[in-house]
Amino acid sequence: MKLIVSSPPHWHSGYSEKKINLDFIIGLMPALIHSLYFFGMHAARVIALCVAVAILSEVILRKIFKNNIGPFNGSAVYLGILFSMLLPPTSPYWLIVFGVFLSIFIGREIFGGIGSNPFSPVLVGMAILELSWPSHLNVNLTSVNYNLGFDCHSPLTALKSAGADYTSKFSFFELGIGNQVGGIGSVAIIFLIIGGIYLLIRKVIRWEIPLFFALGVIGMSAIFNAIDPHNFACPWFHLLTGNIAIGMFFLSTDYASSPFSNPGKIIFGLGCGILTVLFRVLSVHEDGVIYAILIMNLFTPMLDKLVGRPKMLKTAYFGRGIK
């Protein structure tokens, strides 16, 4: 009779990488459905193309790099959907193909695949696109031909060009339920938060990064707001605009590029929030989430050194009957 031998443990929780990616995708579903409802076929086109390109590039690149680790586990699908959520509905085909391919190639596979990427792959692709073709990603320019039933003026552009007083025409409620222009999914603030809470309940992500990201944004913008309320918007306006919601729950919590230690996560989240506001206030960019997270990704290896010391649990036994 043949017996299987293996080293312990002989049980597994059964929660696999595939299920994690499925949970992430479920977390994005509310925002995705909102985008389909809002932009119809335009959104469907962007999402489908992103997912297709992501899967294809992953398969091809793994062949080329002879990286045959692990079976297909849905991470490309998740990456594709997440990428599409950041794009405006009018993005041209070539831009999407290029962006997604670069996300997978430079963002991930070149470093050795899932888990080895120092930066969040989606953000690498997005940053390249934003720096190279800013006009295609400018939400004001891309939405001129739409009639969405609300003001098609990007709130962040308004803030940048006209100051905080002008932003009072945006109601927080409208912003919250996604009546603003931006990426097809990243505007659906309340839906992203619902998805994020799902992830938190399922323990797919931990609460530290989202919470301290939000606290960073609130704290920093409150300081600016206190200095000059006419020029600098209030914290709630910041939280409800741009990519902050999607950044909080989905972009900054990428496993490989965020710290695993709990103190590290807190500093990471705070840093992302503070840098985002600094970018918005001080730089030429309207929305700084992408760059803020990319910069904090740089600090991840350092923040991981903050883990507590291992506990010493040595003990002595006596008698027989103990290993």
Binding site: S116, F260, S261
Partner: peptide, 26 residues
């Protein structure tokens, strides 16, 4: 039976979170 696999670590941090002696298992 769970079969041994040699997959790549995705750096999710679950191992560290559950380690009773607080090791950086990953």
């Amino acid at each position: 039976v769970i079969r041994a696999v040699n997959n790549q670590c995705i750096n999710c941090g679950r191992c560290n979170g559950h380690c009773p002696v607080n090791l950086s298992v990953n």
